[in-house]
Nucleic acid binder design. Structure first.
Lengths: 251, 251
DNA sequence: GAACGCCGTTCGGCATTGTCGAACGCTCAG
DNA sequence: CTGAGCGTTCGACAATGCCGAACGGCGTTC
């Protein structure tokens, strides 16, 4: 790829690698995985350490992500227009539906959660902002797939017995999403849980994200094991409201 | 600085710049600020865009931070030992004190908030994880300064009429912190608010962070405008507990 | 206890790599 | 219509960062 700086690409690959694996990695592992000389890898890591993107454990010599990335990540949230426009509508959606609300975009073949409102009851929940979810097994992901040229991953990972793993079946589901204007997922990622999502459109009608609710199947679905039309209506209303905000913002 | 990759340093400088300024920046601005040729800057930005660290607004052509940074930032939180060890003790501290709890480390002359537990009451609060606070005007920062070789910034910014801006006064305050084993801040960053903090020690007794509570002055302080000894006790207990966890973790 | 293997680190020489500066197309304002 | 400003492209030069081999420390093994 001409015109690009490959030392930066290599640095990014190292960071991704450190983010993927749990815990610290050794210089040798990193160098071998990326097919780089140890000396080269060391130079990049030393530089990344200098700018705070990487830290080194003094006793083991291994490397891990650095603190500067945390601030960059939250700065991204502050800037992100999708998120800032969504916040005003996510809270009411959570209140009306009584469920947790999440907003997501596509990143590297996965769903990146950019906003998360807890379910209104006070049970323990963990913040999922910044986490990556599979495209084919979440309501947010299906909606994003349906309206994007982005293709689903070749290998559809199975999470539960209800996960859609057949490409044909998935294509049919996506067509269904396009026809209905919203998508759902029922026990396809975690047994006992379900979700509903609708697309958020930016300027020119382009889908830039998705908003949805998720929770226990018995609350999300009716007696026929189908998503509650009432919840679907809430989600679609919220998605339209955010889309209007985003479109209006593009004078 | 020999042995370091300067294209990566330049890329990091660009990212810091994008994180600092609010909103998007133009190529020209960036190039001028860093004394780089426009072509060079463009190559770096194009690469950063390729790896998702930077996004470009299609209509204005300006650049902003990218989504990949969000996941890297939260991955840092997952790895971070200071944070993971603190979580179990931060919640009880918030419950006992009835105040918001924050845990911080030093990053580039500021306090980086790595964990934040909301005040137990249900009033509206915004998550401060990832934000940067001044060292000299926060309880967390004073504690970190007192036990670190890191020097306070030459220029002490004034936030309120109570902010300590004289280096001599600050040095005295830090000495006080070292003697007492804890630090406080009363209306030095925001009028009406105060905070108490204590140091967290890692292996070998080295201070690696600080934990503290913050809230309205009338709840944090007694009638003599001094921090409640009861709250100070809670904070110090929590700090010791986390330190023990961290020390024990280093088999 | 000595030899081994593995780790992160250092260093010098080569050529690959990224840098520079000028020129291009474009949009917007005057 | 003209000018200034924007982001972008391109080619030539040499500075830059890459590579590979060698170093010193540590833990393990036999």
């Amino acid at each position: 790829m001409p015109g690009t700086v490959q030392s930066i690409e290599r640095a990014a690959a190292i960071l991704r690698m450190l983010a993927g694996g749990t815990g610290r990695l050794g210089l040798g592992e990193i160098a071998k995985s990326l097919d780089l000389a140890k000396g080269t890898t060391h130079g990049i890591l030393r530089t990344l350490q200098g700018v705070g993107f990487v830290e080194q454990d003094r006793v083991s010599g291994r490397y891990q992500l650095g603190a500067a990335l945390l601030h960059l990540g939250t700065s991204y949230l502050d800037i992100n227009e999708l998120r800032s426009r969504s916040i005003n509508w996510a809270d009411p959606l959570a209140a009306r539906s009584g469920e947790a609300v999440r907003i997501g975009t596509v990143l590297e073949g996965r769903v990146l959660v950019v906003h998360h409102v807890f379910r209104p009851d006070d049970t323990f929940q963990t913040l999922e902002v910044g986490s990556l979810l599979p495209l084919h097994a979440t309501a947010l992901g299906k909606v994003l797939l349906a309206y994007r040229s982005a293709l689903p991953p070749a290998e559809l990972e199975r999470f539960t017995r209800r996960t859609v793993v057949s490409p044909r079946e998935l294509a049919a589901a996506l067509e269904q999403v396009r026809l209905a204007g919203w998508g759902a997922e029922i026990e396809e990622l975690t047994l006992g849980e379900a979700a509903i999502a609708a697309p958020i459109r930016g300027y020119g009608g382009l889908v830039v994200g998705a908003i949805g609710v998720s929770g226990l199947v018995e609350r999300m679905c009716d007696t026929r094991y189908r998503p509650h039309p009432r919840l679907v209506g809430y989600v679609r209303d919220a998605a339209r409201a955010v889309s209007r905000d985003l479109g209006a913002a593009r004078h």
